[in-house]
């Protein structure tokens, strides 16, 4: 989505009613952020919108990018927010060999996830574990990096990488994780925001 460099555009302060609805939308999309939303979006902070090319809006708060949205699609977290609150976003993991492809903006293909270094969800992997806090559903990744629920086609997902601590991409699944395991081939995420892309490099000072 952001393979090319992006020039910063003017930022526009948002009406508080719009800020409130974005906040509600974000929590609804990512219920795991519920315990942390007051820290991510303090009530007194003011949210600004930056219009990027190709009908993408980026939302920035006090110079910190939070999330972005193409048209009226799902809000997607900026990778810097994912790095701050990694526990709040469903993840899959690619094997080491797939990293350089994803970081060059290539479509993420199923074999990068089904190989030994990849991780796809394992339902009930979290049985007996506590939730992140009040209002958050009981889901998350196990020690091996397997999410505790199958993720559906159309769901936003964060891409982790074998041997790495931090996430390397964010995107929307074009194939559900269950189907991905069964088929073992085909595109899984097409247009992602990835480390080092135009959105990542965008400057806010």
């Amino acid at each position: 989505m952001f393979k090319k460099d992006i020039n910063p555009a003017p930022r526009q302060k948002l009406k508080s009613s719009i800020q409130r609805s974005l906040r509600a939308n974000f929590v609804e999309t990512y219920p795991l952020v519920t315990p942390f939303i007051d820290e991510i979006m303090p009530k007194k902070a003011s949210l600004e919108q930056m219009k990027l090319p190709d009908r993408v809006s980026l939302y920035v708060q006090d110079g910190v990018p939070l999330f972005f949205q193409h048209d009226n699609d799902a809000l997607l977290p900026h990778l810097r927010l994912v790095h701050r609150f990694p526990q709040c976003f469903p993840t899959i993991r690619i094997d080491r060999g797939a990293i350089r492809f994803v970081l060059s903006g290539a479509t993420l293909m199923a074999p990068g996830l089904t190989s030994p270094g990849g991780r796809l969800p394992l339902p009930d992997a979290r049985e007996g574990k506590e939730t992140l806090g009040e209002g958050a559903p009981n889901e998350g990744a196990d020690e091996e990096g397997r999410w505790s629920r199958e993720l559906e086609k159309g769901e936003p997902v964060v891409v982790m990488a074998e041997g790495k601590e931090e996430a390397c991409a964010v995107g929307v699944l074009v194939m559900g994780t269950k189907e991905c395991k069964e088929k073992g081939k085909g595109p899984v995420i097409e247009e992602a925001h990835f480390l080092g892309d135009g959105l990542w490099k965008l400057n806010f000072d």
Partner: peptide, 20 residues
């Protein structure tokens, strides 16, 4: 609850990704 991630002063990525 926010983590503080170190970013590379040269390429801006988390240092574990500098190799790319």
């Amino acid at each position: 609850a926010s983590r503080e991630v170190v970013y590379c002063g040269v390429c801006t990525l988390p240092p574990e990704y500098c190799e790319y």
